[in-house]
Design a binder for these strands. Structure first.
Length: 106
DNA sequence: ATAAGGGCACCGC
DNA sequence: CGCGGTGCCCTTA
């Protein structure tokens, strides 16, 4: 059960510290970009805090997106990793962005 | 089994 | 560039 969600969590865990990705990439890594929403659901459900850096997952447009515990907290976590967030937006997104290929790679 | 919601992505205006 | 509407998948009630 929760096979899908588990996969999502696994991908999320593979996101290096100080880097971020978007739901779509994770979805693509799982096979389809349309799974993006489902991905968000999986993270929202309640992954394993700290073990799964769901805060490193943002929107495809570079927006912070949402966060179960509050966007503010998410931004705080990102900042703590050196990720610059301005106006609910990630700066230098492409610089820290992790492609689906990277996620698929183990 | 059916219905509704959700941490989205994409296209069009 | 910004906003709004639509479509997909999965999960929970």
């Amino acid at each position: 059960m929760m096979d899908f969600g588990d996969s999502v969590l696994a991908m999320t865990e593979k996101i290096p510290r100080g880097r971020v990705t978007n739901y779509g990439e994770i979805a693509k890594a799982l096979g389809d970009v349309r799974l993006a929403r489902a991905v968000g659901q999986a993270l929202k459900k309640n992954p394993r805090p700290v073990k799964v850096p769901c805060h490193r997952v943002v929107c495809s447009d570079g927006r912070i997106g949402g966060y179960s515990r509050g966007v503010s907290e998410k931004i705080k976590l990102l900042s703590a990793e050196g990720i610059v967030v301005e106006n609910n937006r990630i700066l230098d997104l492409e610089r820290i962005f992790v492609s689906s290929s990277e996620l698929i790679k183990s």
